[in-house]
Amino acid sequence: MIHTEGLTKTFDGRIAVDAINLDVKEGEVFGFLGPNGAGKTTTVRLLSCLIGPTSGRAWVNGFEVGKQDMDIRRSVGILTETPGLYDRLSAEKNLIIFADLYEVPPDVRDKQVRRYLEMMGLWDRRNEMVAGFSKGMKQKMAIARALIHNPKVLFLDEPTASLDPEASRVVHEFIQGLRSEGHTIFLCTHNLDEADRLCDRIGVMKQKLITVDSQANLRRSLYGRKVVLQVTSITPEIIAAIKALPFVKAVDRSDGALTIALDKPEEQNPILVRTVLQAGGEIQFLSEMKHSLEDIYFSLIGQGEAGG
């Protein structure tokens, strides 16, 4: 659905986006992570034809950036960093104006406006000026506006920034609903928990695209799989017995627990438990060690910096 080849953007000689190669599949939620100034917003602007590339090529929904910009604009929706609504206009008028600019036929437009205002819980306030709306309501309005023409691809730039947990939850549920409807979602976010929960794959970027993969694969490739074993008393015999197991890659002892690296915990945990029991240990807890997306993110950003 989105494909780029060496997509590059410079501003007055400063590289904002450096030759990124990217593939986003139809119907997936793709998380785009990176620190401030990494080039995420510039990439979104390039892919939604708001600015042109300095070099490289990109296709969105089969249309080429720079050659079929109007077709791309018709088939994508964008939620910018700030909601950007006309404060003096009513909620309904805001959506109607944009539906008209997206060339939505009037009968479809009216149904879409009603559908999204009802979905966002704003139908009863449709005639009120947007100026009086809360941040959360404005963000919902901006999402409704991005969807008003039923785009195949949706670019969401920090959709829950500055929202309270309740409003964030509504937006998260909404994104999950959109995925089930088959929309392709390109999600730029600093909220790693949000990315972990919503995204099928993530891309980490810092001018260059550092990596793209699913979180599970990234965890595996960066950290392998580990289990944490807590026993009443750790003895040298227990450690030696565990180390003697052929599938155990490493054993670390810290805070009264053993962290054991292995490949297939589903198959190897029963053998591990038996071995500990036979060595005289009493098991209190056994759990798989989960590296957060935050760990993965900082690890990747560190790799990116080390690699220049």
């Binding site: 939604s48 034809c49 708001l50 109007m70 604009r73 018709r74 994508v76 964008i78 910018t80 700030t82 909601p83 950007g84 609504l85 006309y86 404060d87 944009f98 600019l101 997206y102 060339e103 901006a142 506006r145 991005a146």
Partner: peptide
């Protein structure tokens, strides 16, 4: 001031 230029310019206009 209302930050509406970006969504406006993202439309097929």
């Amino acid at each position: 001031q209302q930050h509406t230029l970006e969504p406006l310019l993202a439309t097929p206009i």
